[in-house]
């Protein structure tokens, strides 16, 4: 490495600290807001240091709910978000790993056709087929259900490609040794492929959990009942547009709670997060 000399060696620290500060500032302000009374925020003179109402606001948010249009306590929304994100992540991983296994380890008519059918869905994001998909989900009576929230989002060309790529790096000899050891396709999958895929599954889980948690457009359409809301849409519904009626302290506490799980996942599982993000883009 070519080293900096003299005073310029402090530039990186300066730039990075500034970057971190700018990136963190909105969240800091959000936290500060969540600890001040509603009227202090509403009159526009909120101090930029934390206020006295941390426990009160978060208790109210979690277990009572905002007094506005949405009365559901945020703990319910958190639970819904958690269930949805986990089901999407696990479901995507499960159906993708078996499809990739099929495409890589078997030879059968229409193998490539099946692969392309999955691949092309990369080009059909939910946003471009939103109303017809909604119509089908409603015809299948999936509105206001966890199945409706998750199953339509569960197909994954990205995850399938990711596993396929990984399977192609498993040496052929390992399959052959397994065959000689008397393992059939299902046993090879269970005893060898699955254990070998552990880190890949973990990496994918982190990415897909965040993806599921942050879903917005689909849950907004598919849920009508308040007790089925996820936290990300719940928060939006708490904002009464351009209106002083918005309970900003509750909104901001909800925002903090909505960020907490996925951000913690990124920070605590950073290694897998980075691996998942970088490798699924190949």
């Amino acid at each position: 490495m070519v080293e900096h000399r003299g005073w310029s060696r402090y530039i990186p620290y300066l730039v990075l600290s500034l970057g971190v500060a700018i990136v963190a500032f909105p969240v800091y302000l959000c936290f500060v807001g969540s600890t001040h009374p509603q009227d202090v925020i509403a009159n526009g003179n909120m101090p930029i240091t934390p206020g006295p109402l941390f426990f009160e606001t978060y208790y109210k948010t979690l277990f009572v709910g905002s007094s506005g249009s949405t009365r559901e306590p945020v703990s319910t929304m958190l639970l819904n978000s958690f269930i949805m994100a986990s089901m999407i992540a696990i479901g995507k991983i499960a159906i993708s790993i078996i499809s990739a296994y099929s495409v890589v380890y078997f030879k059968f008519p229409f193998r490539m056709a099946a692969f392309w059918l999955i691949f092309v869905t990369l080009m059909l994001p939910v946003e471009v087929r939103i109303y017809p998909t909604y119509k089908i989900a409603s015809d299948l009576h999936l509105l206001d259900s966890y199945a409706g929230l998750t199953i339509p989002l569960i197909a994954s060309a990205t995850a399938t490609l990711f596993f396929r790529q990984f399977f192609l790096t498993i040496p052929d000899e390992l399959v052959e040794a397994s065959k000689l050891d008397g393992a059939g396709p299902l046993r090879f999958f269970w005893d060898t492929v699955l254990p070998l895929s552990r880190t890949n599954i973990a990496a994918l889980f982190v990415i897909l959990f965040i993806y599921g948690w942050n879903q917005y457009l689909w849950p907004i359409l598919i849920t009508t009942r308040d007790d089925m809301q996820t936290i990300v849409i719940g928060i939006k519904k708490m904002i009464v547009t351009a209106d002083a009626l918005t309970e900003w302290n509750v909104v901001l506490a909800t925002a903090m709670l909505a960020m907490l799980p996925p951000v913690m996942v990124v920070i605590l599982m950073q290694r897998w997060f980075v691996k998942g993000l970088v490798e699924t883009e190949k």
């Binding site: 040496p171 000899e173 390992l174 052959e176 040794a177 397994s178 065959k179 000689l180 050891d181 008397g182 393992a183 005893d191 060898t192 254990p195 070998l196 552990r198």
Partner: peptide, 20 residues
Amino acid sequence: IEPAERDIAMVFQNYALYPH
């Protein structure tokens, strides 16, 4: 006859040990 039923054993160049 399937490989497993042939009553043979094989040693591979790259060993093909199960890494896990």
